[in-house]
Design a protein around this nucleic acid. Structure first.
Length: 500
RNA sequence: GGUCAUGUGGCCGAGUGGUGAGGCACAGGUCUGCAAAACCUUAUACGGCGGUUCGACCCCGUCCAUGACCUCCA
């Protein structure tokens, strides 16, 4: 049984075979740190974090590279010759790098709360100006780029003509035909600098007011939109690497341009498997700056957004995303998030209980149930291998949760399940929930004082109940409930609690 | 306009040519001093219309609807 992933390039699921096993190179388009990350951004980083974890689980040695785009790009080509970052910097009276630092820090904070493992290398665009210039020089030398007035453009027409012969036409990833594109590109200012409308900027001359600028063979300027990813991915992962991930909205033109640049420089297509996650929608519409419908991650975490009925724990968001397949759209709503919150709690509580148990019998008393458990557990790997179907893995987990809770409540005798199945269940739950899905307990670890206080209240309530003083016992239960602490009377007479 | 997706029950969301994944909500039940939690059970479904097939939610055609990309965008 081997891992299969959907390759956007071939438009089908393919068996994943690293170029140089056991090493795997994975590049994921990172954030542009000119603003705060929103819910939509969480999806690729969680999706590819799970892939990263899973590849590690399978024994691969993965180098995970995710860039930080801190050299600004145009708001809109030609319309306003100002860098996103510099423009906002003026508004906020900040140094560009101060702004970049601020949003980079915020990004890292959000990633940590979502329990995403930091990438192996997190290169910045500003830290790789030299590499980008070198790459542009090579593109010019090879005849696929040209300079006009201090700016450099990529000659898409020539590229397409030459490389189509090798079966590498421009548009191969997104399924576009260049000839169809020409008519549909909008009329823009500054177009006269380009030979063709589909050409894209590699280097842009910096107008006087532009704060971020670097020396180059073509004068002072800053890198174009797509070159950083090509320069940095080839630097750290080689000319051809295994996986390139990112959001579907980057497929065209960003990833298409990356392919073109790298193909010219290295004479081969740079990526073996292109993986794209779909969008998070809100009322059926993509969450994005242009639609003015974004909910920032910090707002999600503390509930401060008009659309939010409450705060959502980062783990709820992670779980919410894992409940769908990464290639489908996922629609946000309070109802959906609240469902995820409850589901995650149920899963986690069953998991915590499970991990405290030991096998009750060497051989299963109920072979039918025992084999059902085995089958459900075996499904974890099977579904993950099928293009990371985390939704199906979770479905199996919930079927197991029902069994686990039944054992807990003694509806099912503990010895129904044999030792090997039981240990397998425990191990795989742990591996999947914690190591692969990266879920953590919602309850923040404290120094035990809160637990001590609660145990005291639980004892007092127990005593009250024993003497049928339900006024007192209910008061404790209800007041704690108001505080968001729920007491649960267990079948065995014990009492547990969960904190909302 | 071009290209490509999607349309599943109250909500979110998997999936397969042959008695309805899963989660949340809802209803009934068990348990409980009463609740909650947990467990059990039931219910509601595959955009419309054709076609292929013994049989289609799953294949084909068509229509409708929605969305994404074509411009910075996860």
């Amino acid at each position: 049984m081997s891992l299969k992933v959907y390759n956007s390039l071939s438009r089908q699921k393919e068996v994943f075979e690293p170029i140089t096993a056991p090493y795997v190179g994975m590049y994921v388009c990172g954030p542009t740190v000119s603003g705060e990350s929103h819910l939509g951004h969480a999806r690729p980083y969680i999706t590819f974090d799970v892939l990263y974890r899973y590849l590690g689980h399978l024994g691969y040695k993965v180098r995970y590279v995710r860039n930080i785009t801190d050299a600004g790009h145009f708001e809109e080509e030609g319309r306003e010759a100002e860098d996103k970052i510099s423009q906002k910097a003026v508004l906020e009276k900040l140094e560009p790098m101060e702004l970049v630092q601020k949003y980079t820090n915020l990004f890292h904070w959000a990633m940590a709360r979502l329990n995403n493992i930091p990438p192996s290398i997190e290169p910045t665009a500003t830290g790789h100006i030299v590499e980008q210039i070198e790459m542009i020089k090579k593109l010019i030398a090879d005849g696929y780029a040209y300079e006009v007035n201090g700016s450099v453009y990529f000659d898409v027409e020539k590229y397409n003509t030459d490389f189509s012969k090798q079966g590498l036409p421009y548009g191969m990833l997104s399924g576009r035909v260049l000839d169809d594109q020409l008519d549909t590109t909008r009329e823009l200012d500054n177009q006269e600098e380009k030979r063709n409308r589909s050409d894209f900027a590699l280097w842009k001359k910096a107008p006087p007011e532009h704060i971020m600028r670097w020396q180059s063979p073509w004068g002072e300027g800053f890198p174009g939109w797509h070159i950083e990813c090509s320069a940095m991915s080839s630097k750290y992962l080689g000319e051809v690497f295994d996986i390139h991930g990112g959001g579907m909205d980057l497929q065209f033109p960003h990833h298409e341009c990356e392919i073109a640049q790298s193909t010219v420089c290295n004479h081969k297509t740079p990526v073996k498997y292109w993986l794209h996650n779909n969008m998070i929608t809100i009322n059926g519409r993509k969450m994005g700056k242009s639609y003015n419908n974004v909910i920032k991650l910090s707002e999600m975490f503390d509930g401060t957004h008009p659309l939010l009925e409450q705060a959502y724990h980062p783990m709820t968001i992670r779980f919410f995303i894992l409940q769908s397949h990464y290639r489908g759209t996922l629609d946000f709503s309070n109802e959906a998030l609240q469902a995820s919150e409850k589901a995650l709690r149920r899963l986690w509580e069953a998991y915590e209980w499970l991990m405290k148990q030991t096998p009750a019998a060497k051989n299963a008393v109920d072979p039918v149930l025992d084999s059902k458990v085995q089958k459900l557990v075996a499904g974890f790997d099977e579904f993950m291998n099928d293009d990371l179907n985390t939704a199906k893995v979770l479905a199996n987990m919930f079927e197991l949760v029902a069994i686990i809770n039944s054992v807990k409540d003694k509806h099912i005798p503990a010895n129904a399940i044999g030792e090997s199945s039981f240990l397998q269940l425990q191990q795989q739950f742990k591996v999947y929930i914690e190591n692969i899905f990266g879920l953590t307990g919602e309850r923040q670890a404290d120094d035990g004082k809160l637990d001590g206080v609660l145990q005291l209240l639980i004892d007092i309530r127990k005593e009250a109940k024993a003497r049928k003083d339900f006024m007192t016992s209910d008061k404790i239960r209800n007041e704690l409930g108001t505080l968001g602490i729920q007491l649960k009377d267990e079948k065995d007479g014990g009492v547990s609690y969960s904190i909302q």
